[in-house]
Amino acid sequence: MLTSTISSTISRTAPPPVAHGHVRRRRLGPGRPIPYGRAVGPLLLVTIWAVASATGVLDPRMLSAPWTIVGTTGDLIASGDLQTHILASLQRAALGFLIGGTVGTVLAIVAGISRIGEALIDGPIQIKRAIPTIGLIPLLILWLGIGETFKVVIIALAAAIYMYVQVFAGLTGIDHRYVELAEVQNYTRWEFLRHVVFPGALPGFFVGLRLSVTFSWLILITVEQINALSGVGYMMSQAQLYAQTDVIVVGLLVYGVFGFASDTLLRLLERRVLSWRRTLTS
């Protein structure tokens, strides 16, 4: 009885329509997510593409029909060409990324934990950072020729820089409060590095990993289209000569799949290693 009196008093001043025990409010958020909503946009694009190809609106010399691309992919796999090219590309990207990532991490650690290291290393790297890696291609071709070494080195250079920048920022950006804590807990320098600095820099390390992988692919595409006798980029530039848009699209799909797969893999790894962070977002 009492509650109903109160609610009727309120409703006289500002009428809240109450239904099923819920106060109705205009919902201003974007609402519930659509199931598989992320797939809607791409599917629509493919549909438009297919319709345009089927009706002849889209000239196959500009862009092949989706089913042509599926067929071409099948042919390229059956002949073994696609696998060969993918393997060549993967080898370059992986080798460049591994070497570059390792060098970048080691340099960042040396520069990040000692002032002498910082004085020696950080300057040159910052200068290199200002020069786009692709701009170094002419010089590197003169030095190393146009063989595999050149391709791996240029990918490694790009990967090293991205890795360095992120790891160095992670190492030097340790919260000062944790430094104080380590001091009052009488940590040795090694304990401080091991328990405070390195774990604290891990998020930066993973950002560096993901950026390095992305840029390894990017540089790979560039160098394979400049000068190569194998690889997905080579396959695409050959297709360009013969105006095979279907093969070019297959190459783009391969790059896309590998770029997406490597990033997803790293993200899963990051979630596992940095599991202490999950509690922040959940």
């Binding site: 409060r177 944790y178 202490w276």
Partner: peptide, 17 residues
Amino acid sequence: DSRLLPWRRVLDNVILG
């Protein structure tokens, strides 16, 4: 502030150093 290292479990934080 409690100044616990977020990447170490509670017990590891207690026996820090």
